[in-house]
Amino acid sequence: MQAIKRAIWGPDPKEQMRTCQSLLRKNQRQLDRHIQDLMAVENKTKTLIKQAAKRNDVNSAKVLAKEMYHTRRQRMRMTRSKAQLQSIGMQMNEAFGLRKIQGTMKTSTDIMKDVNLLIKIPELTGTMQMLSSELMKAGIIDEMVTDSLEEIEEDDDVEEDAEAEISKILEEVTAGKLKSASEAPKIEMPQVSQIEPQEETAVLDDMRERLKALQS
């Protein structure tokens, strides 16, 4: 019966709205999980920095601070994405509300812009493509977002600000004990022999693998 109705009258607006809202909630849950995981990694890294500071292991503390900097940036990006999702939700509900009153649906360039931004985020690409498809079917956006979109570019001054932010993290976590530490090393990760004890190295390696998994 529902199939016959859809064939005659087109998609049910209420059903379309429920589908879009369900996809929005799914994206929000994904972001919440990623944010929580990143906070856990950040807190563990903070603990390891304090331990390195107690041993006066400056090199390890700087490497850990660099990891914490990137983890924090990732978490902030996820938080901004969550705000954009909420904006999409409010605009989408408004669009469906107007359709109910006026009987027509107008496309929204603002929703299109937010969807285009979020679909570039690896953690959301799949579900945002599904949402994009549903919003297009509903007439809220008039163009399908494709896989060919480039990833969101980082700010031009990220690298310039990185060293200053890493120094701030060291000062923040160690209460200024390593304030005079030199510039953070450019290496990706020190050899195992550079961090003592070996147990801490294993923990850090595990944390980095978890962070890579979150970013993949």
Rank of each mutant, 00 (worst) to 15 (best):
H70I: 07
D161Y: 05
S108K: 08
E150L: 07
L178H: 00
M17Y: 03
K106D: 11
A52K: 02
V63T: 11
G126P: 02
A61L: 02
Q28K: 06
A175N: 15
A52N: 05
S216N: 14
L124H: 03
E134D: 11
P11C: 06
A61Q: 04
S133I: 10
A164L: 09
K62V: 06
S22W: 00
I111N: 03
K120G: 10
I119F: 00
K5L: 15
M39I: 10
A40K: 12
E134M: 13
E134K: 15
T19L: 15
Y69V: 03
E143G: 02
P190H: 05
L204G: 02
D155H: 09
W9K: 12
L178G: 03
Q102C: 04
V173M: 02
L118M: 08
E94I: 13
D114S: 13
I195G: 05
E171H: 07
I166M: 08
E163D: 15
T71P: 01
Q198S: 11
V192P: 03
M130R: 07
R25F: 00
L211D: 06
F96Y: 05
D37Q: 15
E150V: 06
T79Y: 01
G176L: 12
S148V: 14
L48S: 02
I169M: 08
Q102L: 04
P11N: 11
I140R: 04
N59Q: 12
G10V: 09
L85A: 00
A7N: 06
G176D: 07
K50A: 01
D161K: 10
